[in-house]
């Protein structure tokens, strides 16, 4: 029987060491039946993008608390373009001011989940987003 399991990289870029949020979301995505490739702390955008490509991930989830979200999101999205992999969905969460969200969405982030988001809304969103992405692909 063919399975179409969702594979998602959960990454924590930058120098801040608070990975509780990343772990909570990794666990929640796992519990909704996805395969979560967890990269651990202090990842560079290059590492995150290469990981997603090697793992043939459908999506990259980025957790940022440091305030450097603008840089990391745009860098990851640019690198994906460079590697002809911009079909990989990028989403994220953490401490990201609401005012900054529209621009992140504009440059290509699929969704940004702030503090207090129920984990199920994140996994539901991702399931739908991957479904749409796969429908577009001629696999």
């Amino acid at each position: 029987m063919a399975e179409d399991k969702i594979r998602v990289v959960v990454a924590k870029p930058g120098l801040d060491g608070h990975d509780r949020g990343a772990k909570v979301i990794a666990r929640a995505l796992r519990d909704s039946g996805m395969e979560v490739i967890y990269t651990g702390l202090r990842q560079t955008p290059e590492q995150i993008v290469e990981t997603a490509i090697q793992e043939d991930a459908d999506a990259i989830g980025i957790s940022i608390l440091s305030g450097a979200h603008e840089y990391y999101f745009s860098k990851v999205i640019d690198l994906l373009k460079e590697k002809e992999a911009s079909d990989i969905i990028v989403f994220g969460g953490g401490v990201i001011p609401e005012d900054d969200v529209p621009h992140l969405l504009e440059i290509g982030a699929g969704a940004i989940f702030g503090p207090g988001t129920p984990t199920t809304s994140c996994s539901e969103w991702l399931k739908n987003a991957v479904k749409e992405k796969r429908a577009m692909e001629t696999r």
Binding site: L29, D31, E35, T39, G40
Partner: peptide, 15 residues
Amino acid sequence: GAILADRIRMQRHSV
């Protein structure tokens, strides 16, 4: 579902 986390230890080779 699964947490695939072996590569945490190998991430320096990812690039």
